[in-house]
Design a protein around this nucleic acid. Sequence first.
RNA 1: GUGGGCGUAGCGUAGCGGUUAACGCGCCAGGUUGUGGCCCUGGAGAUCACGGGUUCAAAUCCCGUCGUCCACCCCA
Length: 423
Amino acid sequence: MTGRYKAPRGTQDILPEDQPHWDFVREVAARISKAFGYEAIKTPVFEEASLFTRGVGEVTDIVQKEMYIFNDRSGLDLALRPEGTAPVCRAYLEHGMHNLPQPVRLWYWTPIFRYDRPQAGRYRQHHQFGAEAIGDSSAAVDVEVIELLWRLYEELGLTNLTLQLNSIGDGKCRPHYLEVLRDYYRDKLDRVCDDDRVRFEQNPLRLLDCKQERCQPIIAGAPPITDYLCDDCTAHFTELTALLEAADIPFTVNPRLVRGLDYYTRTVFEVIPPEEGAQSTIGGGGRYDGLIELLGGRPTPGVGFATGIERTILNLQRQGIAVPQRDRPRIYVAIQTPAARVPAFRLASDIRRAGISAVVSTGDRSLKAQMRHADALGATYVAILGENELAAKSATLRQLADGAQETVPLIDVASRVGRANAR
RNA sequence: GUGGGCGUAGCGUAGCGGUUAACGCGCCAGGUUGUGGCCCUGGAGAUCACGGGUUCAAAUCCCGUCGUCCACCCCA
């Protein structure tokens, strides 16, 4: 029976059958974060809208056309979180985390909302796992977060991923580069796409990111930003690449890699899977040394990444990676006579108290139907309580895999079922 | 936001102008006397995405809306 309602456009239900993949990624993410000394943080699903318009940047796509904005009953301008970094930085400031040992290492797992046109691997509500290291400007921290991300994919079993890396300079050298870039483009504007003419005015760095066929030759001839970095940025980038090599993390320097959020400085990176497709990027991040100050704090450096859970799972499936199976009840308690109902409930209750999962028959199916049911649920054992068993205070314990059957005193069922090939 | 493909039971599909919309999987129940998986039988389950139009007649043709997929855009 199909109901009237459907999940809103671009959203989806994550069903029991999907959980094994989610549990797997979540478990690995939490474990690796912990291994790197990162601690979990949860921030509200909504924030003051200006946190994002200011933090992420007025001219970014996220702010200009993708935010879910609403007024609450007091008229406050709020936005559903469109990205994870700004809220974490807000929390860092709000809770005086500069008084903690620096850098503060945090990770999060959270829904993200963007009013985008949905596609496979692109949703209006999706989830991101991310990590941020705030309060340390050294390249070693950049490498740390990249290594954390890389290790995640490694432990998940994903292969053939590519790490792309670039430095987009800082407040000292980038303005100069942008002028160089503008000078280069100025006499070519008649040959580029319409979007690029807007980018030329508003966000010239993004010119390098254009995917239009006709713009490619022009991009190819553009001066690479890496040639225009100041000494500090160059030193940072040089150390970064040296450390990545030392950590055995393969990377490709892509001088045209630009990210869609304004707060990035120096290091930016993206991880791309082997399959073609528009929504290819599964993870990315970078350094954001100006963000905290922009949000009203003392100048504080930071670096982090985020990876999309849905896209990560999509790639797990594409690569045929097996994940731990979903849980099945250890035992199903079936009754042959209504008189067994109460003892059956007691038995199931005792088994659960012993930490073993048990499903007890409900309703009044025939024993045959209960057996079928137990099999469909994937139970390992069935305990049958009939008149004979009640009289003997025991249960007939059947192992579904091979049909082996024995009579076991009720008080021994839990321990009998809990031993031997417990999952 | 732009362009294109698709939209039939929970899932996968058939039907593509003409009487009660079909099949597979799944679900429920039975196949005699207390027992699953295979097999057999039966049952439930579909306003044929929604709304309008054309026609004597529409799941089938046309338009719109919504959803989904693909590309663009953007990103995770």
